[in-house]
Write a protein that binds this DNA or RNA. Structure first.
Lengths: 198, 198
DNA sequence: ACCTTTGTAGAACACCGTTCTACGTTACTG
DNA sequence: CAGTAACGTAGAACGGTGTTCTACAAAGGT
């Protein structure tokens, strides 16, 4: 459907597509989700607003592409925890998750905030999100296999960890943290998870 | 500032204010956050759009009033756990939290979704949110005093619980749950929290 | 070389939050 | 009981949004 090269027509250069997503990311970081308008992105990419509709269908398609990149970044950030010790690997994974959210708050908010449940998610978006989640499932399985975590369905366990970690990061980003030191509270959360799932 | 009766002028009947918030809640439930427009609310309340600005300043003031009601509802839902056993009281509190979110998904999404960190929160809104959180802190303190939870700052512990519970509910509402039975996963989360904080 | 196809540009439409201006309606004042 | 000043209201209007429409220019196939 979106594969234009299959029609035999001229390749739509594909570079403009990436330029639009790049521009959208810059606008998102600079002006927040509220400032992410079709006109602003098109102007940032030096393209007519119509280009967004030619390549992404509508605004949702564009933000879906941006969100897909966000999930890819989240996957990369949490997947590069290569510690040999399974507990260390999980801890690094959890710390990288928070670091990603704090480094890219606009992305994170858009990825999990409003507008997700509303708009029907793109297939690519779902794939990226699943890949990011799978990275966590793998690390949980690694820990279970080595006896660092109690046996059980890795998916269930990963979902449980994800819930807690996402909640903590989400509340911290929203400014709803009531603790003095968010970083210390987050470490305590990770430790509690390890204790509770031991 | 908003206390009109102090000026000696005619009382703005106050009923219209509530009628507007009532209408806003109906529109929110019916059409979602995206359909919550000033015109739609005004029409639902049989009032001119200008009434919103006279009584709430702008749209954010109106949604802040709706969100304040939402936090009051959340506080009421989680505070009516009167079990004698401290563990049961915490469990009931956690279950009621999820029930509130599932019963009022639009409210919950608006309360913790985008638009919170962006708009400057009203004082009443902060008060309601703090009251809801305090209900949890009280229950944690109750459990700590009776030895059901390990000693520690009740605020830190409550924040930790809130993070996990909010994360689970938030992901479930967003449709990002990857487990077969969300209710069972939530129960497992609560149990894990009790284990980890024992 | 022609023609079809395709992306582009800019105006245009409906809707949004918000503001402005004219207009009752109400409550205080002499 | 007038007169007046303040106040909330109604409706149009402004800038901005997502989206669509219509004409136009450029590239590929025959």
């Amino acid at each position: 459907m979106t594969d234009v090269s299959a029609t035999g027509g001229r390749t739509p250069s594909r570079a403009v597509e990436q330029a639009l997503v790049d521009a959208a990311e810059r606008v998102l970081v600079r002006d927040g989700l509220g400032g992410l308008t079709v006109r602003a992105v098109a102007a940032e990419a030096a393209v007519a607003p119509m280009g967004v509709y030619n390549r992404f269908g509508n605004k949702d398609g564009l933000v879906a592409a941006v969100l897909a990149r966000g999930f890819e970044g989240l996957r990369a950030a949490t997947a590069d925890a290569a510690d040999a010790d399974p507990v260390d690997r999980l801890l690094t994974c959890g710390r990288n998750y928070r670091r990603f959210a704090l480094d890219h708050p606009q992305h994170y908010g858009a990825m999990f905030g409003a507008g997700w449940a509303a708009a029907v998610p793109t297939e690519e978006l779902v794939d990226r999100a699943n890949a990011a989640f799978q990275a966590l499932v793998d690390r949980v399985g690694y820990a279970v296999d080595r006896g660092a975590l109690r046996p059980g369905d890795p998916v269930d366990t990963a979902q449980l960890i994800w819930s807690s970690v996402h909640g903590a990061v989400s509340l911290e980003l929203a400014g709803l943290g009531r603790t003095a030191d968010p970083a210390a509270s987050y470490e305590a959360l990770l430790q509690m998870l390890l204790d509770g799932l031991r």
